[in-house]
Nucleic acid binder design. Structure first.
Lengths: 302, 302
DNA sequence: AGAACTGCTGCATTCAATGCAGCACTGTCG
DNA sequence: CGACAGTGCTGCATTGAATGCAGCAGTTCT
């Protein structure tokens, strides 16, 4: 336990970029902090910081060490959670990095449902684009990632995967509101708004229009799906989103229509964890619940 | 680093079965040790020892914790070894648990060859039966296991696998020395010596004779293959061993003959590590060398 | 009943970790 | 060029957490 303290100091120094600055943040003297780091480097057998004229920076050994300690800390949490679990306590914490689409409906409902059964479990939910979500997994700052169309997948171990067709959203009086099938070219012919670059929906739209006669020509581009959802009600425009981020029976007068799948191939929503990691009980159980629910939704759409 | 000290104490107490006894072994007072353990349990949030009238014993939480710390310590060694490696040092330690057959020829040669290239690397070799070898992996007391016909394979991740036919060994003037093919029933008709129960060779012989007309009826049973190898030269008996434990051109006048494979199916020699573990560089490199050599030997026999 | 264990705890001591002040050095800016 | 604001590092005195000592309460075995 105590040792993780030393590691916290190391992490703090790495973050601050200077021993003195880190010492201020932690409220100890710089000399004490300096000595602890020197002592650690002695015991460890190698420098972990390179000394620059304007501070310090982790060297390769340091990076390796930080990675080790993060894994170790998370594993200790897992053990504690397992111990709590075997005394029937069902305590713990679940941290999730997810795409925007999960924020309004899906995750709140799922978390509330889980907490109804296990009130001792706490949650943290962070919005991340698909690159950042994977990064969060590998730094152990999130247990689970729930993202649309992840990119690298190297550290990402897939727990569940459900297809998500791209949908168009629009005002009820939009000319295309009743069109069937709804073609992509018709959507793009009129005014439309698209998500900004790092998002999966944008990526799929790019792929679909590449080489085609009808390019993307968005009048508004945004990183917020919530903004776009509201925007299409004001200017008669088309927006794009995946079904899990939209409710069928919602209060707003929004029409949601699946785009003809030949025009835009459906992407997939991935639930994943860091490859090879053993999750704490609470996270593992919640992942099981999510998996079941996702498969249920996928079946319902067929 | 320092924290692993506390863990060493915990391990010591678990081994000794009593705080006072452990304190004597470590040369500190029992009160100090007692307090450290209590403090740890406070920080950890749960008891890890159950207090019995005659001492203490790890409870379930404790077992979980010990497992965690062993993994953590070994991972720290891996990091240190990687750090040493990136400064070009090629230091480290490789610990191997292996079957007896590897002791006389194979491992000495392989280790010497490896150390010729990397003099900074040290080795430890422990003889283990196939159950114990796997246990050594899961307690992190060995990096690699090289065993004939392992049993459980749950924590055992196979790195390489080579078939090893059962061979009969005998004096040059034994009546069966020139028999071709050499049938198992002929071997068992005369006096023979067999390995004791936990060994793979014995297991395969049992399987081969089960239900057959010619049962095992060993006059001598031993846990030492070296003993058996020498014994067959004194009384005109047949012994059994796998090829890797025997040299073709050896000084002793011993005849080694492969038994007709329809009579006794060949077993396999497995090189393995703990499932999911990342080995220190030295161990990983040595495993690569072993794998190459084993495959070479397998090809040579075809 | 007494001896020999066990884990646990109050009190004094000790030693490792800390805070303070100051040194040597580097880069910046007037 | 020189004052200045940074940096990491170190000698010395102080402090506080960890230790040792002695003793308690409880159990088991002789």
């Amino acid at each position: 336990m105590r040792h993780l303290e030393t590691f916290r100091l190391i992490e703090e120094v790495a973050r601050a970029g200077s021993i003195r600055k880190a010492a201020e943040d932690i409220n100890i003297t710089s000399s004490a902090l300096n000595r602890r780091i020197q002592r650690f480097e002695d015991e460890f057998g190698s420098q972990i910081f390179e000394r620059l004229p304007h501070g310090v920076r982790l060297n390769t050994a340091g990076e390796l060490l930080v990675q080790h300690y993060r894994a170790q800390r998370s594993d200790l949490l897992r053990v504690q959670s397992q111990v709590a679990d075997l005394s029937g306590e069902r305590r713990g914490h679940v941290s999730i990095a997810c795409s925007q689409a999960l924020l309004p409906y899906f995750l709140p409902k799922q978390i509330a449902r889980y907490r109804a059964g296990h009130p001792g479990v706490t949650f943290s939910v962070e919005v991340r684009d698909r690159a950042a979500a994977e990064h969060d997994l590998s730094t152990f700052s999130s247990d689970l990632a729930l993202v649309f169309e992840p990119i690298h997948m190297v550290d990402f171990e897939v727990i569940a995967r459900v297809p998500q067709p791209i949908c168009a959203m629009m005002a009820p009086d939009h000319p295309l509101a009743a069109e069937d099938p709804l073609r992509l070219r018709d959507c793009l012919a009129g005014p439309h708004v698209v998500p900004s670059a790092p998002y999966g929906v944008r990526h799929l739209l790019e792929m679909a229009t590449r080489g085609g006669s009808m390019p993307l020509s968005a009048m508004v581009e945004s990183s917020s799906f919530e903004f776009m959802r509201h925007y299409v009600l004001h200017e008669r425009a088309i927006g794009f989103q995946i079904p899990i981020g939209l409710m069928v029976h919602q209060s707003e007068p929004l029409v949601v229509r699946e785009i003809y799948q030949r025009d835009v191939p459906p992407g997939a929503l991935f639930l994943g964890q860091l490859r090879g990691r053993t999750l704490p009980v609470a996270s593992a159980r919640f992942a099981v619940q999510l998996t079941a629910e996702l498969l249920l939704q996928a079946d319902a759409r067929d």
